[in-house]
Design a protein around this nucleic acid. Structure first.
Length: 272
DNA sequence: AGTGCGACCCGAACGC
DNA sequence: TGCGTTCGGGTCGCAC
């Protein structure tokens, strides 16, 4: 489940492997991944090269000369680099072939991921990017920013933390972990959070995201190693997927509930 | 304007 | 063992 930390890991790994290699072919096996006209998509890539890879929230931005290739991994998207001759696997949906006979292959068992080509000058008007809120590690993410954003949100804080237009990059795993570390009940209405609680969210989100990036993200399900996403932050999780386990702080049993249709894990004693 | 929920997917986990 | 059913996860689009 790639969140900000996992996407950052993929970005760093891919940067070492695919920049400045000429793209000679693009094969689209499952077209629904791509939000452009398929021929336009191919045309933007072929005979071009990736100059850099950036990241905004959970979006990867592959920089070309005139375009960005935006890629969102959603649940299970991942990239592999393989030799062109290797057999194409069932869940490989988009294959970008370089002149050196290697492929960048997009693999996604659930087909949830999305790709989109946008002209560079249109990037700031692209809603996927322009609507992203502040990232956890952005110093301009302050408690007054959060309080302003939370002011008219009466939903549970857990749901609001997943809103990418407020904080960009948190997913279900880190939202659960941040609220635990902040000692805030996930059901608490966002507009009732104090300035001090907002500060705790920022501080713990910083700590957790930094550590998660350092550990290469979280690998929940046991996959064979995929490019850049075999992280080790799962060894540091306190509550996520830990229902019935003792809380590492007080020993009370971790509970699992549904908030906004999403699994939410918390300690009923530490997060009153 | 904000809020809630179904749709998108399919492998894993579960129930019988 | 084998079959059918349910679940999950991020985001979008639609209905209210």
């Amino acid at each position: 489940m790639p969140e900000l930390a996992e996407v950052e890991t993929v970005r760093n790994t891919l940067k070492k492997r695919i920049l400045h290699k000429k793209i000679v072919d693009v094969k689209i096996i499952y077209g629904n991944i791509i939000q452009n006209d398929l021929e336009e998509f191919k045309k933007a890539l072929i005979n071009n090269e990736f100059k850099d890879i950036k990241r905004v929230g959970k979006w990867l931005l592959f920089e070309l000369n005139d375009y960005y290739l935006l890629s969102h991994l959603r649940m299970e998207g991942k990239y592999f680099i393989k030799n062109r001759e290797e057999e194409v696997l069932k869940h490989e949906h988009v294959i970008i072939t370089f002149a050196d006979h290697t492929d960048l292959r997009y693999h996604d068992t659930r087909k949830f991921g999305r790709m989109k080509i946008v002209k560079k000058e249109d990037l700031k008007n692209t809603k996927e990017i322009s609507k992203q809120g502040k990232e956890p590690l952005d110093p301009s993410l302050t408690s007054s920013y959060l309080q302003t954003k939370f002011k008219n949100k009466k939903g549970p804080i857990k749901t609001i933390l997943l809103d990418q237009e407020i904080i960009s990059g948190l997913g279900n795993i880190y939202a659960n972990e941040v609220l635990f570390a902040s000692k805030i009940n996930p059901l608490k209405c966002a507009n009732t959070l104090t300035k001090e609680e907002c500060e705790r969210i920022i501080m713990t989100a910083n700590k957790i995201i930094k550590k998660a990036i350092e550990m290469g993200g979280t690998t929940i399900r046991s996959y064979t190693s995929s490019l850049g996403v075999t992280g080790h932050y799962q060894d540091y999780l306190c509550v996520h997927k830990k229902e019935g386990d003792p809380c590492p702080i007080c020993g009370c049993l971790i509970e699992k509930i549904k908030i906004g249709g999403r699994s939410t894990y918390f300690c009923p004693n530490c997060q009153k």
